[in-house]
Write a protein that binds this DNA or RNA. Structure first.
Length: 831
RNA sequence: GCGAGAGUGGCGGAAUUGGCAGACGCACUAGACUUAGGAUCUAGCGGGAAACCGUGGGGGUUCAACUCCCCCCUCUCGCACCA
């Protein structure tokens, strides 16, 4: 009787005792760094979370079996808001909340049979860890990649903190979905923009990353190439630079559009007769933007401000407008309006009766300004463009920019959408920013020797008036200047938790090192991570930030690699119909659709949970949890259990060498063939893209085949059976390790199965002595025959054409053509 | 609008990349074993009486198309007035 509860505890304890996952980094076998995104200790894990760890564990165990020295570490992304919010709500310390969650979740992981090197466990909220997060901050500070500035920033009123642009999803807070407000505040930034081009270029190194993650990062970086062109405000010396990707259309400029937030506006309208009207328009646009970005985007609106700008290429004056579609966040906040060749400008110009001047003609067609119904945005030949007329626009583009560069009125420019990364948070539960402010020395970094700047114990975690709770901790705030020794005040904001996870994969290599953040030579040997596994939700956030920090560390000479993660796998979400929304939703407490792993394990065991999670579907795709199908996984484990227990007395201790297929009955040959083909298929499925679902179905097929063989006690039969059963058990072991380990010992082996080696298959055994040839008439399946695999084409043709049924199939039609595909199929074309 | 991915039985999903569509599992049906079956084993299970028809729809290439090409529809995700 298969009793998972009894065996699972036993083997978990055993693996721990033999240090199956505790490794020596200096072992000279091939290394494999298998990393799952470490969890935020939010309470308990549900089966949806489990997918990540189960995939990672299956892979780690497979690699261990295959002889690699596998590093599979785990830790806790333990700083962050939920702890603090829970602390405020329940009146406990965020640290206590976090630690008790870690304890619970660790128990869960162990109960699932997930193997980690627990000696390397880290928690980012531990001073021994965040000391080095502060060190990373100081590395950036030293390179002037960390700086403080007053800026308009995203503010989440519910989280009571500022957010990075990457944390704002569709205008709302990534964490709590509250609409984000704009606020002017002094904040710390990391100059990720300085690495925009490198981050973009090196995406091409990431050949083992999902395309969509790379595309998302590419979009986010948002590079566009063009020119910055200086328009002069008529009657002044003041320049109004604008960015365009289409300098070839500069002769078609008929107006200039300014973002309502453009800093030049105030001065420009100071003595404007319709100043009030303009201010009203600006306020209106701002209000609309606040309500809904999309709605604000629906209709183009603008107001002229009775000023002109001079087009530097031809000296022509065009009117200046404030519009709702020019964005301050992109380019320079000023847009040259070319209605003939930009659809937005076109709509705007038609609405307000502004002129349309075509300057690029499609080849073999004609553009008529008055009759155009849409902008022409494709390539063509320059017209109305002074001495650039007649050139292809792509060529003219280069020449026009060159011409402007010579005359210093414009220049080639690359614009990026990505902004600098706002990293300061006005909350308590995070890494203190290691900076002090001195009346004499100004902003001073805390010297490395003085790290860590300890997060103080405080009584009240509630943030007040947009300031960190640390601002009220006098003993923390008041300090001495590391420079002059005079009185100074500490920075009271903390660092966004994202920074903690930007370098944790380095820390696993030397987690208790008190001298340095990480060991350069170990990092050089063990990184990049061979396989990183995690959720798609980190496509831009964690994965972009980590790439950035690694590049900085590389440039500083701390590490010899430019990219942290060689291969990335993003697993799909596990969903279930929510009783609250009535729809299929990602499992979450708030949707009331979580399945508790503890209950399931109590009923079926961890192996069933693991097997089902891997069998549920292609791991990169979302999947719907199905309680019924879980029983199927349990049934299968029972099935293999019963068969092995039944056979074990006859198989254990048996030693018969099988060489080739000679002397075996057809039934036994078939089973041997199946055994070896299954080894091949399972190996291929794991290696070739984590197809655990098909790997498991292949094992199920093998077990089905085992069931069909009727065994007498003939030696060969036992030997073939032993080979089949042992293969099934080993192949199953990465997925359902406890039952596999137990059955392995029942088959007379010493534990552990994970040192038994991944089986090889013999291609000769897989070869069949008969191949099935499909017979088609005009491409339609009509029949099948078995032939020897090496039978010559003419002979196969002859046999097929001699079939009595052929007449019936062809219905007396003449045979025009016969196509033979070696060992597969014969198609007779008749008509 | 741009980009990425997807659409196959009642359901989840397979198909070595152009060569038997529906592996494996769930659900369902029948038989066996049983005092019993919601356990287990065995078998069946796309539609159709059959010829045949069937992989979102329509064209095409090919001896042969889930797979390749063109057009269209639907869904998911990401970006989006990005100048």
């Amino acid at each position: 009787m298969y009793n998972p509860e009894a065996i699972e505890k036993k083997w978990q304890k055993y693996w721990d005792e033999i240090n199956l996952f505790s490794i020596d980094l200096n072992d000279n076998r091939d290394k494999f760094y298998c990393l799952v995104m470490f969890p935020y200790p939010s309470g308990t894990l549900h089966v949806g979370h489990g997918r990540n760890y189960i995939i990672g564990d299956a892979l780690a165990r497979y690699k261990i079996l295959d002889g690699y020295n596998v590093l599979s570490p785990i830790g806790w992304d333990a700083f962050g808001l939920p702890a603090e919010n829970a602390a405020i709500k329940n009146n406990i310390h965020p640290k206590d909340w976090t630690i008790s969650n870690i304890r619970r979740m660790k128990e869960q992981l162990i109960r699932w049979g997930i193997g980690y090197d627990w000696d390397r466990e880290i928690a980012t909220c531990h001073p021994g860890y965040y000391k080095w997060t502060q060190w990373v901050f100081l590395v950036l500070y030293r390179r002037v990649l960390a700086y403080k500035k007053l800026a308009g920033v995203n503010w989440c009123p519910s989280c009571a903190t500022t957010l990075a642009n990457e944390e704002v999803i569709g205008g709302s807070c990534e964490r709590c979905d509250t609409p984000v407000e704009q606020k002017n505040q002094e904040q710390w930034f990391f100059k990720i923009t300085e690495y925009a081009q490198k981050l973009l270029d090196d995406l091409s190194m990431l050949t083992e990353w999902p395309e969509r993650v790379k595309v998302m990062q590419e979009n986010w970086i948002g590079r566009s190439e063009g020119a910055e062109i200086d328009f002069k405000i008529e009657g002044t010396q003041r320049l109004l630079p604008c960015f365009t990707t289409r300098p070839d259309t500069i002769y078609g400029v008929t107006f200039m559009a300014l973002a309502p937030e453009h800093p030049a506006i105030e001065e420009l309208i100071i003595d404007s007769p319709n100043r009030e009207e303009i201010l009203q328009f600006i306020n209106e646009v701002r209000r609309e933007k606040k309500i809904s970005r999309e709605e604000a985007a629906a209709e183009k609106k603008g107001i002229p401000i009775n000023r002109n700008v001079i087009n530097p290429i031809n000296g022509k004056a065009v009117p200046l407008w404030i519009t709702n579609y020019a964005l301050m966040e992109y380019g320079t906040g000023a847009v040259m309006g070319v209605p003939a060749h930009d659809q937005r400008d076109f709509e705007f110009a038609r609405k307000y009766g502004l002129p349309v001047i075509p300057v690029i003609m499609p080849e073999g067609a004609d553009l008529e300004a008055t009759s155009m119904e849409a902008a022409y945005t494709d390539d063509g030949i320059q017209i109305n463009s002074g001495h650039f007329n007649g050139l292809r626009n792509r060529e003219a583009m280069q020449k026009i920019v060159g011409h402007m560069e010579e005359r210093k009125v414009g220049r080639h420019r690359i614009s990026y959408k990505i902004r600098d990364w706002l990293i300061s948070r006005q909350r308590y539960w995070g890494t203190p920013i290691p900076i002090v402010y001195c009346g004499k020395c100004g902003e001073v970094p805390v010297p490395e020797a003085d790290l860590p700047v300890m997060l103080p114990e405080i009584g009240n975690f509630r943030p007040k008036e947009g300031r960190s709770p640390l601002a009220h901790a006098e003993a923390f705030v008041n300090t001495r200047c590391p420079g002059c020794g005079g009185p100074a005040k500490r920075e009271t904001d903390t660092i966004a938790q994202w920074l903690c996870s930007c370098w944790y994969f380095l820390r696993y290599l030397s987690p208790r090192d008190t001298q340095k953040a990480f060991d350069k030579s170990l990092a050089g040997r063990w990184l990049p991570v061979d396989q990183y596994i995690g959720g798609i939700e980190h496509a831009v956030l964690h994965l972009l930030y980590s790439r950035f920090i690694v590049k900085v560390l590389y440039d500083e000479g701390y590490i010899p690699f430019k990219e942290p993660f060689q291969a990335l796998f993003t697993q799909g979400m596990i969903c279930k119909t929510s009783s609250i929304t009535g729809r299929l939703e990602k499992m979450s407490k708030s949707k009331g659709n979580v399945v508790s792993p503890d209950e399931l394990i109590g009923k079926y065991g961890a192996d069933t949970l693991r097997l089902y999670t891997l069998f549920i579907g292609p791991p990169e795709k979302d999947a719907e949890w199905n309680d019924r199908a879980v029983e199927g996984a349990f049934r299968f484990l029972n099935r293999i259990w019963r068969k092995v227990i039944e056979l074990a007395p006859n198989l254990s201790g048996l030693s018969v060498e099988l060489t080739g297929q000679a002397g075996l009955s057809k039934e036994l040959k078939d089973l041997r063939r199946k055994t070896h083909a299954t080894i091949r298929d399972v190996t291929r499925d794991i290696e070739g893209g984590f197809h655990f679902n098909t790997a498991i179905s292949a094992i199920m097929e093998l077990v089905n085949s085992i069931y069909l063989v009727k065994l007498d006690n003939e030696k060969n039969g036992l030997a073939v059976m032993k080979e089949a059963v042992e293969a099934a058990v080993i192949l199953l072991s990465p997925f359902a390790p406890h039952i596999a380990e137990e059955l392995w010992t029942k088959l007379g082996h010493m534990p552990t199965i994970f040192r038994a080696g991944w089986p090889d298959y013999d291609p000769d055994v897989i070869k069949t002595d008969e191949v099935l040839i499909v017979i088609q008439i005009n491409g339609k399946l009509k029949g099948k025959i078995d032939v020897p695999p090496d039978l010559k084409e003419e002979e196969v043709r002859a046999r097929v054409l001699a079939l009595p049924k052929l007449m019936e199939w062809t219905k007396g039609k003449a045979i025009k053509k016969v196509i033979y595909v070696q060992g597969r199929l014969i198609n007779i074309v008749a008509g």
